[in-house]
Design a protein around this nucleic acid. Structure first.
Lengths: 209, 209, 209, 209
DNA sequence: CATGAATGAGGTTTCATTCAT
DNA sequence: AATGAATGAAACCTCATTCAT
């Protein structure tokens, strides 16, 4: 149909196949939801036959799993580095971290991933667990330790760090869901970076002794 | 076999049928997700035959729609009343509203509903739209007007009310999703009321001129 | 298409469904083998939709299992009765039993069943086991006890009863396989009754002291 | 990875390829049945790629055909020789032939082959025909001519030679099927040589004038 | 009002078979 | 001679949905 793309799959570099497939899958999972997505559509969007997908993945579910695993890890460890290396007052780092998260939300497909995980965690608990262990279970303690450091140094007043962390992160979650679930349906576009900056502002102010 | 419990379906007050069905449906949608829920299971949990469901609902999707519609309306108008009737400083009302939301989150199945809507809004856009129009589109402006009132009266400093509202509501969303998606998978239970109180605290402090 | 048979499945007595399905299945399994038989064909030969089969059976394999179970039991216990009630010389009973077996082979579809079991026992070991336990494990000992009785009474000379039984039964097995596997392919038809009579003759003569 | 064992496929005497493949195929056909055997498994057991099989065989079915053809011929002509060269009383030759058959059954994979042919003759009639023409159609007449010779010479009494042959061969068939289909499933092991000897004994006795 | 029985429409998955190198 | 990559064709099975009673 289209010029180039008719170069049959046999010709294209096969190392790229898995990521091509995952990309197609994420697009469709996002557009229609996991269940409503037909493997046939993933295949044809990836320029392959249905059967070819099974050369690289075991299952329809494996696509989801792979997607989540591929998108996670890196970001967390990056943030973790930022925090451990940091010295001095906590507030600027907090701003920086939220800004970093916002960046991820805007530049990558993390919002879609997050929504996907939330949506599918009941039907595919392995995915929920993976996310719980590797994202939530790492990110929240990271932020929490930051807050605690601020309290210890007298930069922040005494607050429950656990609750505070959730208040800090909540708006980011809202941003992700807004972007992935509601924008495509007609909601006003959301400026996650601005939201993050404002969030940081509010929290830092609210924590002043 | 034909003792008491078998008289059920026919003898039980038949006006209650629809809500019995909806209850069963919500249970199962929550446990397994919308797609993974078999109409047969909804039926048997409601003590009816599959076919009987079609006497009360058109569709599997109608169950979802009905569920959302049934759970939404009331709360919003209640909150709306609280706000319009209120006079004097805004901060206490803000606390009250968040506490009210937290109550709903803990006493009703709203968290499940919210998660369901988020999950299915792509596959069933009508539901997404309904929620956007009737919940998000009403609740956020309500809060926003409150903030604006506070700013106007000098109780709050000047902030972007739109972003502030999202920061205010974000933690509640996080609470809902936590409860519906992650608690059942093993996450620590969350105390949404405490979260709401803390959220109110932080925001009010942060908005002090 | 055809007059009567177009009375949709909804009308016909539903209690007969399982056996109708099994009959269709046996026909086709016999004609084409288990694997080569399409469930769709079973369905349409039974005058049903594919899906309807699943109202009565779990699996394609269940059809096979059910088929075997349905055809087995009765015959064995019948033979068992004949033997236990019998008194006097063994030889006539032997003839009678072989003649009975031959009758079953000619009047029922036992040959097809036997061939089916032999063919599928590797791929579906449950079936092999069932047959081993309920047919082979019962029939051979039955015959064996008869031979032993004959030896004890002096009617027969001393022989290894185990081997003798296999020599007695072998020709019947040959008959079954011939009929089910080779006749339909063009082999001369086989007269199992005559074979059984001759078999009895030979054995009885061979066992004379 | 690329040590010794990896040189295999290319270096090993390539003339042996077909028989290596057939061996692998027979193993698997026997273990799992023809249909349940994946060409991929045959390939990997033969130390080749799936595609390589097609360099030597046209079809999955061709493997079966080749297998049958390779195992058949020789034995028959051997027996045929024994018979035509023989002179004098028939009984000893009968014993010898049965013993020879038993040997084949125990030393070669003929039982598996026989079971395979029986199982697949409906789905692959060519195979059935081949077997009918080359094995059954040759072996039975051979035995029959022997019996007839015995009757003519007065060594045996007058019996229907056709039926007698089937009674003679039946136990051998039983032995083959027992060994291939039921032993692997847990049936007591069978001593085919003893069975053959006993079979010969009984028949010879039964045929005495 | 209620249901047991039936089905249409499809989706995921599997595999023998073939290209292109 | 050999293979990794790809695919067409189909089979099994599931389920929302509808009849006929």
């Amino acid at each position: 149909m289209t010029d180039q793309s008719e170069i049959t799959a046999r010709k294209r570099r096969p190392e790229a196949r898995p990521s091509e497939i995952l990309e197609a899958a994420l697009d469709l999972f996002t557009e229609r939801g996991f269940n409503a997505t037909r493997l046939a559509d993933v295949a044809s969007r990836a320029g392959l036959s249905k059967a070819a997908i099974y050369l690289y993945f075991n299952d329809k579910t494996s696509l989801l799993t792979a997607l989540v695993q591929a998108t996670v890890g890196a970001n967390i460890s990056l943030a973790s580095d930022m925090i451990s290396k940091h010295q001095g007052p906590v507030a600027p780092l907090l701003r920086q971290l939220l800004s970093f998260m916002a960046g991820r939300m805007e530049e990558t497909r993390m919002p879609d991933l997050i929504k996907l995980v939330i949506s599918e965690s009941r039907a595919h608990p392995e995915i929920g667990h993976f996310y719980l262990d590797n994202v939530i279970g790492k990110a929240l303690p990271l932020f929490q330790s930051l807050i605690e450091r601020g309290i210890a140094s007298g930069e922040f007043r005494e607050v429950d760090p656990r609750l505070t962390v959730k208040c800090l992160v909540g708006p980011m979650l809202l941003g992700a869901i807004w972007k992935s679930a509601f924008e495509p349906i007609g909601a006003d576009p959301i400026d996650i970076s601005a939201l993050a900056a404002h969030d940081a502002d509010l929290i830092i102010r609210a924590l002043r002794p």
